[in-house]
Design a protein around this nucleic acid. Sequence first.
DNA 1: AAGCCGGGGTG
DNA 2: CACCCAGGCTT
Length: 362
Amino acid sequence: MNKLTDSQIEDFQIQLLNWYDINKKPLPWRKTKAPYQIWISEIMAQQTQVETVIPYYERFMTKYPTVESLAQADDAELLKMWEGLGYYSRVRNLKLAAQQMIRDFDGQFPSDLTDILSLKGIGPYTAAAIASISFNLAEPAIDGNLMRVTSRLFELDSDISKSNARKSFDEVLRPLISSERPGDFNQALMDIGSQICTPKIARCEICPLNQYCQAYKEGTQLNFPVKTKKIKQTEHFFAAFAAQNSLGEWYLEKRPEQGLLADMWLFPMTELTKAEFNQASTDGTSKRPKISESIGKINFVSNYKHVFSHQKWNIALFSCQIEEKFEVSELLLDENKKWIKDLSQIPLAGPQVKLFEILNKN
DNA sequence: AAGCCGGGGTG
DNA sequence: CACCCAGGCTT
């Protein structure tokens, strides 16, 4: 938490703003405080790299220099101006907000925070950014950059993937923000976040705030910000082959000694493409594990989906009752491939337990 | 609270 | 390739 004294807060602001005055990025929208310009730049910069934004901003300002011109813009021309920027609802909302200003605010950009927030496409971050830069309101503009920097400064462990995290960051930043230069304060922290305090590297030696940084002191920079939101899973497709011989033994393979489910046992599986998997689960004509090729008729049983923290396995399960005429010795056997009867003695991979349950039900 | 929306940069 | 974004709207 922020336990800085008043004089420390004052010095914090001085260090930060002095650094900004020397090192700030020379961006076209930093030559003005006009709310219309700041607004357009902030909307463009949402989820978009600044370098990408610059040429779009210049062209947009030439074509739509005022609220009126934007409010009357041709939809197709407007969308064309946004082409390649992504998140195209942003530009639709720009026009709607401009029309709101014509209708509700006498064609002017509103200066009250609540009014700014009422505009289409403007949420808490953008409202605070415009309010602080254009109207000198001491509102912390809390975006991903500020959350990263602030979480490291104070080892603030609020989970930024939760929507209520904003509140705890606001509580820390509000007493800290410069009331004289709130816009520069916000932009300075953003620049530090993009140039110094980046997601995977913290260049603390050159950071003007390092004397105030708790994570720097503790060496925990990369533990912050805390984000629990699940990483997107990668999806995999397999054909699994369940073979049981006349002795009631199952044919299992041991996984590699490193990685996922290391050293655990599983039916032989081959990885399929999504298309092959879909084929397998409709008519059973799948690529199958090598072992299955020479031992007779096999049957498609069912599909099973297993979810790991970061992988999703789609398994098409096939079964085969080994005929007695096939000698066990014909199968490829070694330390990692065995016929096994006593399943209680070997570690079974998680998906394997489920596959046995499926077989028992059928 | 979670899903959705685009594209580019980075390690 | 996986992750990271100068977020906000919809459901």
